[in-house]
């Protein structure tokens, strides 16, 4: 009898509420925008895109600077390491190729020609869009953080193996009439691949690449946001993605989301979720 009670009791389900106390899940059509919840975090976030390559001798210094900046700015700084298809990204030996189609698309669009190159929020900082992160990123990040916060962005993720379901919520903190897009990216940490070192000769075969762009969940330029552009508007959408890249270790993966102006590509808000 006790076994029977124990088995029956164990068979009972307990569902957990979300942070707002709701026992609900998104069940609308994928990519459809619906009214969403208010977002508590209105602080600015900076998306730092770093174009890099395994055969780029200055790139490890760029990585070190960015890691230091992450310690300084904490979650306000969201870096992405992008490998395009230039000669600097050609893998050594049998290493996996870290370049991605989305990286190539962006690299061509922004005319990336030297490595490492960084872009902050796809916005000119101090009169220039691109800069060398190895020479420092603080000025650009500080400039980006000082911009008015136009919108708040939040994302949550559920992962089942290589299947991802991401819910993105945004709240207009100011009127912003221009059309927007939201871009979702799959990033991976701790990817081991040989990296040329600053002396130009040494190759670190155990180099761990962080915040490595793996795949775009949305179109590279994002999915259209269905919103009226008025301050106070809160919208939400859910996206799903199944990764088919066998080289990706999904236990090291997370999602980066950002909202950008559809016309200018300027990034207005960014967030990450694990």
């Amino acid at each position: 009898m006790f076994v029977a009670v124990a088995l029956l009791y164990a068979s009972c389900d307990k569902v957990e509420a979300d942070a707002n106390g709701y026992y609900i899940y998104y069940s609308g059509a994928i990519g459809d925008w619906v009214d969403g919840p208010a977002i508590a975090d209105h602080s600015p976030h900076v998306l730092l895109e770093k174009y890099t390559g395994v055969r780029c001798l200055n790139c490890p210094d760029g990585d070190a600077v960015i890691h230091a900046a992450m310690n300084t700015y904490g979650s306000a700084l969201i870096p992405i390491s992008i490998h395009d298809s230039s000669s600097f990204t050609r893998p050594y030996g049998s290493d996996q190729r870290l370049s991605t189609p989305v990286g190539n698309t962006w690299s061509r669009y922004f005319g990336i020609s030297s490595y490492p190159t960084a872009i902050c929020n796809r916005t000119e900082m101090g009169g220039t869009l691109q800069f060398n992160p190895a020479a420092g990123v603080s000025a650009a990040v500080e400039a980006a953080l000082s911009q008015p916060v136009m919108m708040a962005l939040a994302a949550s993720m559920e992962r089942d193996g290589n299947h991802y379901a991401v819910t993105v919520s945004l709240e207009y903190l100011q009127d912003y009439p221009n059309p927007l897009t939201v871009t979702l990216l799959l990033l991976e940490d701790s990817v081991r691949a040989t990296q040329l070192q600053p002396d130009g000769r040494t190759k670190d075969t155990a180099y761990l690449h962080s915040h490595l762009l793996r795949e775009a969940i949305t179109n590279p330029w994002g999915a259209d946001v269905d919103a009226d552009g008025h301050k106070g508007t809160k919208r939400q959408a859910r996206f799903t993605h199944t990764s088919t890249n066998p080289l990706v270790n999904h236990s090291h993966c997370y999602i980066v989301a950002f909202v950008s102006d559809k016309n200018t590509r300027q990034i207005l808000a960014a967030t990450e979720c694990r």
Partner: peptide, 14 residues
């Protein structure tokens, strides 16, 4: 009540 959302239902209730 939130558009686009459904209730997260416990299937086994004790």
């Amino acid at each position: 009540a939130t558009p686009g959302y459904s209730l997260l239902l416990p299937l086994n209730v004790g």
